Lab assay of single mutants.
Amino acid sequence: SEEEEEEWRRAKERGEEIIILGILWKPNDEEAERRIKEALRRV
């Protein structure tokens, strides 16, 4: 969703871990980033 995407962007800017759509994303975690982008597209 729009607000999840916004939340994720803010976490990326701050360089902090975030759990979004049930996926743990850490800074520079390209695999998780790809999965999150896929999940955001499906929503």
Rank of each mutant, 00 (worst) to 15 (best):
I20V: 09
G22D: 04
V43N: 09
E4L: 15
E17K: 08
R14H: 07
E7Y: 13
L21R: 12
E33Q: 04
R35K: 12
E5M: 12
R41A: 11
R42V: 10
V43D: 07
R14N: 11
A32E: 03
R10N: 07
E2L: 15
L24P: 04
R9C: 08
I18K: 07
W8P: 02
S1K: 12
E3P: 13
R34H: 07
E30P: 11
E16K: 10
A39V: 06
R14P: 02
E6Y: 12
E4T: 13
E6R: 06
W25A: 01
G22I: 13
V43Y: 14
L24D: 00
E17D: 08
W8I: 05
E33K: 02
E6T: 06
E2H: 15
E5P: 10
E13L: 14
K37S: 09
L40E: 01
I19S: 05
R10F: 06
E2R: 14
R42F: 08
K37T: 14
L21K: 06
E4P: 15
E4I: 15
R14I: 10
E7L: 15
R34N: 11
R35T: 05
D29M: 02
V43A: 14
R35Y: 03
E7H: 12
L21S: 03
G15W: 07
K37G: 05
R41H: 09
A11I: 15
E33G: 05
K37D: 10
K37V: 14
I19Q: 07
A39T: 04
E31L: 07
G22P: 00
E16G: 06
E4G: 11
P27G: 03
R41F: 08
E13T: 08
G22A: 04
P27R: 01
G15E: 05
S1N: 13
R42H: 08
R9P: 01
E31T: 08
D29Q: 04
E6A: 11
W25E: 00
A11T: 03
A11M: 10
E5I: 10
R10Q: 09
K12C: 11
I19L: 12
D29H: 04
A32K: 01
R10C: 13
E3K: 14
I23V: 06
K26H: 05
A11R: 06
R41G: 08
R14T: 08
I23Y: 00
I23F: 03
A39N: 02
R42T: 09
E33V: 05
L21V: 04
I19N: 06
I20E: 00
I18P: 00
S1A: 14
A32G: 03
E3L: 13
E7G: 08
E30K: 10
E31M: 05
R34W: 10
R10M: 09
E2F: 15
D29E: 02
I20D: 00
K12I: 10
E5Q: 06
E13I: 11
I20K: 01
E3I: 14
A39H: 04
L21F: 11
I36Q: 01
E33N: 06
R9L: 12
E38V: 05
E38P: 02
E13P: 00
K26Q: 06
P27T: 02
E2G: 14
R34S: 11
I19G: 02
E38Y: 01
E33Y: 07
I20L: 04
A11Y: 10
E33W: 11
N28R: 07
G15L: 06
R42W: 07
K26G: 05
R14D: 05
R41D: 08
R35L: 13
E2Q: 13
I20M: 03
I36S: 01
E3A: 14
E17L: 09
E2S: 15
K12M: 14
P27H: 01
A11F: 09
I19K: 05
K37Y: 12
R42E: 08
R34M: 12
G22Y: 11
V43C: 14
R41K: 11
R41L: 11
E13H: 07
L21N: 03
A32T: 06
I23L: 05
R9W: 10
K12F: 12
D29V: 03
K37R: 14
E17T: 13
E30Q: 10
E2M: 14
E31S: 07
E30S: 09
A39E: 05
W25G: 00
G22T: 04
R34Q: 12
R10V: 07
R9K: 10
E2C: 15
R41E: 09
I18H: 03
W8G: 00
E30C: 13
L24G: 01
L24S: 07
S1D: 12
E38D: 11
L24Y: 07
G15C: 14
E16P: 03
E38A: 10
R34I: 08
R10W: 08
E38T: 05
A32P: 00
E17N: 10
R14E: 07
G15Q: 08
R10K: 11
E17H: 09
A32M: 03
E7R: 15
L40N: 00
G15F: 06
R35G: 04
L40D: 00
I19R: 08
V43S: 13
A39Y: 06
N28T: 04
W8D: 01
L21A: 09
E4M: 15
G15D: 03
K37M: 13
E13F: 08
E33T: 11
I36T: 02
L40C: 06
K26S: 11
W8A: 01
R9E: 10
I23H: 03
I36M: 04
R35V: 05
I19P: 01
A11S: 06
R14G: 05
K37P: 00
E3M: 13
E16S: 10
E5V: 07
A39R: 09
E33I: 05
L24W: 03
A32S: 11
I23Q: 01
W25S: 00
R9A: 09
R35D: 05
E13V: 10
A11D: 01
L40F: 08
L24I: 07
L21E: 03
I20P: 00
L21Q: 09
N28D: 13
A11P: 02
A11N: 03
A32W: 02
R14C: 15
R9Y: 10
I20S: 01
